[in-house]
Design a protein around this nucleic acid. Structure first.
Lengths: 193, 193
DNA sequence: ACCTCCCTGACGACCGTCAGGCAATTATGA
DNA sequence: TCATAATTGCCTGACGGTCGTCAGGGAGGT
């Protein structure tokens, strides 16, 4: 039980200050124990980081699977727009998880850069399969203009990443206005005319 | 002279490990002096970081001004595409500056979060004025479909940020293939049909 | 008697910063 | 022109503080 509490506190600290910047003392204090007690559950700091990362990955993958399932029978536009918006809402609703993820992806602690990047590639590939099916189905049904599926996937990832970056700068209200405009332009760029 | 050498070494270290993660000892070693000697030019670590940041900002702004100037008389598509590609080439050609910028923007050291974010807002606003003029001119000339300029600007920033993120994951060749697809979809989304 | 869980104490390493020294260069004034 | 003063540029030494980790102890439940 305490292990889970530690993970939660560690998530926040790692998200805010990164792996090197976060201190075991600070995490322990947030839990209400001494720093040495963390070693009962996570012998090394790296172990704690790994546990937090896997917890985050599990949570996010669960969200994605649920999302994809819910959208099984819908027009391409609805499906894609829902992925964009639900991703945004997930990120807005889980700021600590999101900050941790952003930091881990862009500035991974050196001790397991490779493991981490591989994990991220896996997650992206899992998504790519799903996105590809949406695009190909959309093209067959005449909802989406015929073009290379790879280009569509690239652009969609670019859209999602760009949105994730922009979230950082604007207030909720302002951002949602922007999001609407961004989506309309993306959809205009791929739909069948 | 040494001051500039120190700044260059600091740029690399700050870019790779962040403000807290980079050590004065490491930077000094890269220059070939002792860590205490840095204090001759930069009394506090924060002063060094500030100097590096201002150097980077000046360099990048110079690049943007030059770019905007060169594109003064060209069709909207050319201008926008050039901005995208030249930005990409700049980032690819100056990886340390880019990494430093990314880290500073997304995870600013706490001691001057506000100063830094304000600086960034300034840089973005300077660009926004230029982008807006391209879009408005493009709409007047019938090159771009009539719509809210704000939406176009939002989408363009989203495009640039998304591209900056994606650069991280792919090799040069693979990435440039993707970039082409991404650009085509964006342009299809805003051009006059 | 044996785990489970958390504790105290101490360690070596590294951090940024302050204080002060010393040679080489440059500027000053007779 | 030359002695002297001032400045520059980098040095050594030491400081208090924080870090992660190792070693070992003790209370409470099984």
């Amino acid at each position: 039980m305490t292990a889970h509490t530690i993970e939660q506190a560690a998530l926040v600290h790692f998200a805010e200050k990164g792996f090197e910047g976060a201190s075991l003392a600070g995490i322990a204090q947030a839990v209400g124990i001494k720093k040495q007690s963390i070693a009962t559950y996570f012998p090394k700091k790296e172990d704690l980081f790994m546990a937090v990362f896997h917890g985050m990955a599990k949570h996010y993958i669960g969200f994605l699977e649920q999302l994809y399932q819910d959208l099984a029978d819908a027009p391409a536009e609805t499906r894609l727009r829902e992925i964009v918006y639900k991703n945004y809402q997930y990120r807005a609703g889980h700021p600590a998880l999101t900050a941790f993820y952003k930091r881990a992806v862009q500035f991974p602690p050196p001790f397991f850069k490779e493991v981490l990047l591989e994990q991220i590639r896996m997650m992206e590939q899992r998504s790519a399969v799903f996105y590809r099916s949406i695009f190909e189905e959309g093209m067959v049904k005449g909802e989406i203009r015929r073009q290379q599926p790879e280009d569509l996937i690239s652009a969609f990832y670019c859209l999602l990443d760009g949105i994730a970056m922009q979230m950082f700068f604007y207030e909720e209200e302002e951002f949602e206005r922007r999001l609407k405009g961004i989506w309309n332009i993306f959809w205009a760029g791929i739909k069948q005319t």
